[in-house]
Design a protein around this nucleic acid. Structure first.
Lengths: 137, 137
DNA sequence: TTAAACTTTGCAACAGTGTTGCACAAACTT
DNA sequence: AAGTTTGTGCAACACTGTTGCAAAGTTTAA
């Protein structure tokens, strides 16, 4: 994705496309996997943790990325589809490979809607499958 | 559960039933929900964080408790069924109530086995549903 | 029963994650 | 161009998870 396309996308989602935000979003999109704050921090030494942190937060608020907690201790972020509103119907399974440590979206596997016992409401869900991915097998 | 029963259970699982371990396990069993290290720490001021930590670790290694990461930042622990070996077939959904903060096992809802794309292996999974529980509704 | 060997506990320390207040810089308004 | 708003960098902090070490407790075996 080019800078230009990214800037357009940010604007579309009502996030002012500053240099930092464009950089962070671009890195996320192009990585093809979920990245943590620390992952991003390493990728460009120059940028402050808090700046990246706040960029991620505003992406999250505007349904541009969703958090994935794969159990490694740090929350990772993955880019959403264009029309995502992060509600029940947009949720999908995430896969965490214990060999390479990559975490990725499995958009082809929507999270099944479970029938909860009476009295429970269903708001959101996280479904992480842990195993080994084809590259590592 | 009485101390005696707990000590028997620990012994059965090859964990030497010391006073501390008995106390920690008892608290977990009787709470009826998943507890974090911090939760346990607060429950008995006298006991060292590291002692509880190590107790939990040995329970985990011996399939007496399983970790639940409900996204609140601290891993919680819930007691396993007696015959649990923490493999795919023992996995169940966990429910996290955003009002009261309780996290509990939904043993009645086993995690559905998903058909992964070719090349992926399925090792473990976490499936957390977030919503409001009957007590809080 | 006593000494040696092993296990558990408490203490202290440390790295990593997430988060915030504040001041300066940059961008936008009028 | 001056004033207002927004974004960034810095520093600090709390909390989580984890470990090394020494003291206390328990088990083993002579």
């Amino acid at each position: 994705m080019t800078n230009n396309e990214i800037e357009k996308k940010l604007a579309l989602k009502n996030v002012k496309p500053t240099a930092m935000r464009t950089l962070v979003y671009k890195t996320l999109v192009n990585s093809g996997k979920a990245l943590s704050l620390a992952d991003l921090e390493m990728q460009f030494e120059k940028v402050e943790r808090s700046t990246i942190y706040r960029a991620l937060k505003s992406f999250e608020e505007n349904f541009m990325v969703h958090p994935v907690d794969d159990g490694t201790g740090a929350v990772k972020y993955a880019v959403c589809d264009d029309d995502c509103t992060c509600n029940i119907h947009d949720l999908h399974v995430h896969f965490y490979c214990t060999r390479c440590g990559r975490t990725r979206c499995m958009k082809e596997l929507p999270i099944p809607e479970m029938k909860l016992p009476a009295g429970y409401t269903y708001d959101k869900a996280q479904f992480i499958i842990q195993g080994v991915c084809p590259r590592c097998d």
